[in-house]
Amino acid sequence: MEYNQKGLTKGWYCPNQKRIVGKDLIIKDYGELEVTLNQKLQLNRIKNLAEKVAKSNIIPFFIGGDHTITYPIIKGFLEHYEKIQIIHVDAHSDLGINRWDIVEHGSFMKNLIQEEKIRHIYQLGIRGPQDKEDIKSDKLTTLFGTSFKNVTIDSTLPTYITFDVDVFDPSIVPSVGYPVPNGWHYKDFLDFIELCVNNADVIGIDIVEYNEMYDFGNKIGASTVTHAILDLLAGVMMKNENERD
């Protein structure tokens, strides 16, 4: 990231957006949150951090890690916002039970759906096996595979995006714990940015579940995820820059 003499970003040309993005902004890496083996303490630390961020003028981009982090992040945001909606991009619905008596990566969405301040949850890219007892709720829209291309996201509600990289097809992101075939290709991801990210009032993003242990020798998963982070940033910046203009 290059900066001008005023300490603001010079931006970069994004071929997918066909324009310069990220110009005249303050972008910082705030470092890493120390990990503890005490799960409840860890969840509380993440929640406290997210609450502080939500009260600032920062649009945060959290990088995990296990998908469990989304639960305390959103709990922290709910301390500040009166209402939000969630765009949950994932191969799995994560509507399972708390198997160890604590929220975890397969159950965090089941816990969040009970929050009154969450007005709607859009689940996109789902293709893993579904439990016949998965939750049915008026506030939940589940769109399988690439069928999200017909959905209309409420552009007026503060929107949190949680992105599990196992939504990608294993041919381009093999480096996940629970790969599922027939996933998104990068063109589908770019369509998602154009249709959902560019038009949403994004208040925060997380991207999770990349695991280097499962990557190929040429790090194809790392490359895809890195480009996905840049394109997600570009999508959020484009909307903010248009509003500024």
Rank of each mutant, 00 (worst) to 15 (best):
Y214T: 03
L37C: 12
V176W: 02
I121S: 06
Q130T: 09
Y210E: 02
I63Y: 03
N48Y: 06
I135A: 08
K18C: 01
L157D: 15
V180L: 00
F108V: 04
C196G: 00
F216I: 01
V236W: 08
D66S: 09
D24I: 03
I220F: 10
P181R: 07
I97R: 15
G106K: 09
N182G: 07
G96H: 01
I87Q: 15
W184T: 14
V236L: 11
F77H: 03
V176A: 07
I59V: 14
H80K: 11
T152S: 12
S223M: 15
N150G: 13
D201R: 15
V176R: 06
D188T: 05
G106L: 06
V167T: 01
V103W: 11
I97N: 10
K219Y: 08
D138L: 12
A200Y: 02
G177K: 14
I121V: 03
V202F: 00
T70A: 06
F216E: 01
I46C: 13
I118L: 12
S223E: 15
G22I: 10
P60Q: 08
T146G: 04
G177R: 09
K75E: 15
K10P: 06
I193A: 13
Y186A: 09
E34M: 05
I229H: 03
V180W: 02
D94Q: 11
G7H: 05
R99H: 14
D131H: 05
E79I: 11
I126G: 10
T70P: 09
E82Q: 12
S93I: 07
K52F: 10
V173H: 02
N48H: 10
N111T: 07
G22T: 07
T226W: 04
A54C: 04
Q85W: 04
E79K: 09
I118E: 10
D166K: 04
E241Q: 12
L33N: 03
L143A: 09
S155P: 07
L78I: 14
L124M: 10
V103K: 06
T141A: 05
I27M: 12
S137L: 10
I59G: 03
K6C: 12
D188C: 05
T141S: 14
M213D: 09
I84P: 01
W12S: 07
V151Y: 15
M237Y: 02
V202N: 07
D66C: 11
Y160H: 01
S137A: 14
I193H: 11
K149G: 11
D66A: 08
V151S: 15
I205S: 14
D231Q: 04
L112F: 08
L124R: 06
P170I: 15
I84Y: 01
K40P: 00
